[in-house]
Nucleic acid binder design. Structure first.
Length: 624
RNA sequence: GGCUUCGUAGCUUAACUGGAUAGAGCACCUGACUACGAAUCAGGAGGUUGCAGGUUCGAAUCCUGCCGAGGUCACCA
C-alpha cells in the first residue's frame, strides 16, 4: 500500500489523485482534455452527506453535458478506481465523495505515529523576515505588538511550511528623535539612570523624549506671541487659514528654522554624524538602556531574532548602487545634482534617491540594506512586516530592486498590516492614549490570574507553577486576540475584550487542550488498537477531517503570510472537540475499540491544537 | 484633487480566493453540572454583505458609477 501520508501531505496526495482520475475519465468518456486546475476539492460542507466535495460546474460548460450526468460518470469512475472512496452522491454541480471508514482509521493511525504532524517537507528556500523595527527613543506600544506577533508567527509558520527562516529587525538607533531624548536627559535628567530609579530603560528614555516634546511645545507657544511669529503668519498664511491652523501646520518648519531646542537637537545630530566622542558615548549609553528594556519585553512576548541590523551602521548604504544604476541610465540626474528614478511607466511618480548634496534618503538605505542582506544570507525571499501606511514606499522599493535586476526581486513581499485603533479612536501619543506594551502584558496576565483564582482549580500547584499557567493563559488571550484578525484589516483593539477568556479566544482553545490532557491522564496508557471500530459518528468524522486538512492550512497560511488562518483553524478544531467531548463518552465508551479510538482521536486533536497554537507563539498549559 | 486600501448582525469578525441555505464570538433571552474539567454545551432572536447597475450556471468576492471611512502623495524616517 502506498504511503499516502509519507510526506505529511496526505490530503494533497488524495486530492491530486482525485483530480488526475477526473482528468482521465473525462478524456475517456468525452474525448476532452481538461486542465486539473479547473477542479477544486474541499471538505464537504456540513448538511450534505460526504467527506470531500468536487465542484464540477466548470466542466459543464466545457463538455456541454448536464451536471448530473457528468457527476455520475465521475463518481462511478472514482469509486471503481480509488479504494479509499466508498460511495458518492451528486447535488447540482457538486460531487460529494464518502471515504471508507478504513481510510479514516488508517489515517488516524499514521498521524499518531508522526512526530511533527503539520510540519511540511523542506523546500530548500530561504526567507528572511523583518519585523518589530522600533525606534530607540520610546518604549514599545500596541502597534509594535501587532507587528511583532505577526512577524514572529509568520516566521514559525513559514518554517513549518518548509522554509529556512532568518528573523531580523532593523533598529532605528539614529536620527533626530533619539537626539531629542538625549538632549532632554542632559538638560533635565539630573544624571538619573535605570539603575538609580529602578525604571525600565526604554521607559526612562521615552520619558525624556516626552519631556523634550513638552518643552518644545511650550517654547513654540511662547514664540507664537512674538512679532517675528506675527510677521511669518502674515506673509505665509494661506487664505481662510486661521492662526491656530497655520501654526499647527508650521510646527515642523519652526523646529528647523527658529527653535532654540530644535537647533540644539540638530547640533547634537551633527556632532553624532561627525563622530564626536562625548555624543557617541551618551548615545550608546542611552541606547543600551533601551535595548535592555526591549529585551525584557521581547522575552515576555517569546520572540527573538537571528540578526540585528542597526540603522547607525546601514544608513549610508545604497549610494554606490544608486550611482551604478545612474551609470546604466536606470536613474537620472537633475541640474542640482540630485538623483531620481522615474516610475511613471508604473503609474507612479518620480522619486528621489540621492539628495543634491549627494547624501542618502530613506529609500536609498533600504536599497542598500536589501543588497547587504542578500550578501549576508543569500535569501530567496524577503518579507517586510511594516504597517500599511508605508504601502507606497514598498511598492517603489520593490520596483527599484526589480529594475536593478536583483536575484531575490520576485520574492519580495510587504506584509502590510492595518493600524490598531482603540474603541475611542486612533492611538495618539499627544493625547496619551497610546497603549504601552508592558502595561498591556501585565494587564492580561493579572486578568488571567484573577479568573483562575476565582475558579480555584490550581490550588494544589506551587506558586511558580501557577504563575506559569497564568502567564500562558494571559499571553494566549492577548496573542490570539490580535492574530485572529486578518493582517490587512485595520483592527479595533478593545482592552476589555482582549482579556476575555470566553468564546472565540486563546483560553477557549487552551481549555480544549487541557480537557484532553485531563482525559488522557485519567485513561492511563492509550492503545492504538482501534481498527475494529468500524463506525463512528459525525462529530468524530468532523474532527478527523479537520486534522486531515491541517497541513493544507499550514501551507495556505504560509502562502498568504497570514497567521489568522491558523488561529481560526485552531478555534474551529477546539470548538468541534468541545462538542465531541460533551456529546460522546470517551472513558466509558461502549467497547474497547471505541474507547481506544476516541482516546487516540483526542490525543491527536491535542497534538494538532498544540502545534497550531505554537505557530502563533502561544504555549499550552497542562492545567488551567 | 491623483493613487490606494477598506465598508458583512448593535459590537468584534469568518467565508477554503467565483461555489451549496453568508459562518462564529461578545452582548441579550432560554435550557444543561450526583457522567471523562461549566474558561463548556444546546437552543432563540439578530443580515437586502454601504447604494445602484453589469458580467454568468452561480457574486460578499470580478467590472463600472456613486456614498462613506482610512492611508499616501517631503532633498523626514
Amino acid at each position: 500500500m502506498s504511503t499516502f501520508f509519507g510526506d505529511n501531505r496526505g490530503h494533497m496526495q488524495l486530492f491530486d489523485k482525485i483530480k488526475t482520475e477526473i482528468v482521465n475519465v473525462t478524456h475517456r468518456s468525452y474525448g476532452t482534455s481538461i486542465d486539473p486546475g479547473l477542479l477544486t476539492v474541499s471538505p464537504t460542507r456540513k448538511d450534505f452527506e460526504g467527506d470531500m466535495t468536487v465542484v464540477i460546474f466548470p466542466l459543464v460548460k466545457l463538455l456541454r453535458k448536464k451536471p448530473q450526468d457528468i457527476g455520475a460518470i465521475i463518481g462511478d469512475h472514482l469509486v471503481s478506481k480509488m479504494p479509499e472512496i466508498d460511495h458518492f452522491n451528486v447535488v447540482q454541480g457538486f460531487v460529494n465523495l464518502s471515504l471508507t471508514s478504513d481510510y479514516w482509521l488508517s489515517f488516524l493511525e499514521k498521524s499518531l505515529a508522526h512526530d511533527e504532524y503539520g510540519k511540511l517537507a523542506r523546500n530548500g528556500e530561504k526567507v528572511m523576515i523583518e519585523y518589530s523595527s522600533p525606534n530607540t527613543n520610546k518604549p514599545l506600544h500596541l502597534g509594535h505588538i501587532r507587528n511583532i506577533l505577526l512577524g514572529s508567527s509568520c516566521a514559525n509558520i513559514m518554517h513549518a511550511a518548509g522554509f529556512e527562516v532568518v528573523k531580523v529587525q532593523v533598529i532605528n538607533d539614529r536620527g533626530i528623535a533619539i537626539c531629542k531624548s538625549m538632549l532632554a536627559w542632559l538638560k533635565y535628567g539630573g544624571g538619573e539612570t535605570p539603575a538609580s530609579t529602578g525604571e525600565k530603560g526604554d521607559h526612562l528614555v521615552g520619558k525624556y523624549y516626552v519631556r523634550f516634546e513638552k518643552e518644545f511645545r511650550d517654547e513654540y507657544q511662547e514664540w507664537q506671541q512674538s512679532p517675528k511669529a506675527q510677521e511669518v503668519f502674515e506673509s505665509r498664511k494661506k487664505e481662510d487659514q486661521s492662526r491656530d491652523q497655520f501654526f499647527a501646520a508650521y510646527k515642523n518648519e519652526y523646529f528647523n528654522r527658529y527653535s532654540e531646542l530644535g537647533n540644539e537637537a540638530r547640533e547634537m545630530l551633527q556632532k553624532w554624524e561627525d563622530g564626536d566622542a562625548d555624543t557617541i558615548e551618551l548615545w550608546s549609553q542611552m541606547n543600551g538602556w533601551v535595548y535592555a528594556g526591549f529585551d525584557q519585553t521581547y522575552e515576555r512576548l517569546g520572540v527573538d531574532f537571528d540578526h540585528l541590523y542597526y540603522e547607525s551602521e546601514t544608513w549610508k548604504l545604497g549610494k554606490s548602487e544608486v550611482l551604478q544604476g545612474l551609470d546604466k541610465n536606470l536613474f537620472f540626474q537633475k541640474d542640482d545634482g540630485s538623483v531620481w528614478v522615474d516610475l511613471s511607466h508604473e503609474d507612479k511618480d518620480e522619486k528621489i534617491l540621492l539628495r543634491s548634496d549627494g547624501t542618502s534618503v530613506y529609500i536609498t538605505q533600504d536599497i542598500g540594506t536589501a543588497m547587504q542582506r542578500y550578501r549576508d544570507y543569500g535569501i530567496d525571499r524577503m518579507v517586510y512586516v511594516v504597517a500599511d501606511e508605508q504601502n507606497y514606499h514598498f511598492q517603489v522599493l520593490f520596483e527599484i530592486l526589480n529594475m536593478l535586476d536583483e536575484p531575490y526581486a520576485e520574492g519580495l513581499f510587504h506584509l502590510s498590516y492595518g493600524m490598531v485603533d482603540l474603541p475611542s479612536g486612533k492611538m495618539k501619543s499627544r493625547e496619551g492614549t497610546v497603549v504601552d506594551a508592558d502595561d498591556l502584558i501585565d494587564d492580561v496576565i493579572s486578568e488571567a490570574r484573577q479568573v483562575a483564582m476565582e475558579k480555584g482549580d490550581l490550588e494544589d500547584l506551587d506558586e511558580s507553577a501557577r504563575d506559569e499557567v497564568f502567564f500562558r493563559i494571559g499571553m494566549g488571550a492577548l496573542k490570539f486576540f490580535i492574530l485572529k484578525v486578518n493582517p490587512g484589516k485595520r483592527m479595533t483593539f478593545d482592552p476589555e475584550a482582549s482579556v476575555d477568556m470566553q468564546g472565540q479566544t486563546g483560553p477557549y482553545v487552551q481549555n480544549a487542550y487541557v480537557r484532553i490532557q485531563s482525559v488522557l491522564r485519567k485513561a492511563g496508557s492509550i492503545s492504538a488498537d482501534f481498527r475494529s471500530c468500524q463506525s463512528f459518528g459525525d462529530t468524530e468524522k468532523h474532527l478527523l477531517t479537520q486534522i486531515f486538512m491541517y497541513p493544507e492550512i499550514v501551507k495556505r497560511s504560509a502562502n498568504e503570510y497570514d497567521p489568522s488562518v491558523i488561529a481560526n483553524f485552531c478555534y474551529d478544531l477546539a470548538k468541534s472537540y468541545h462538542r465531541f467531548y460533551h456529546d460522546v463518552p470517551i472513558l466509558t465508551a461502549e467497547s474497547d475499540a471505541a474507547r481506544n479510538f476516541r482516546l487516540s482521536l483526542s490525543s491527536m486533536v491535542g497534538t494538532v491544537l498544540e502545534n497550531g497554537m505554537n505557530l502563533l507563539g502561544i504555549e499550552m498549559p497542562q492545567r488551567m
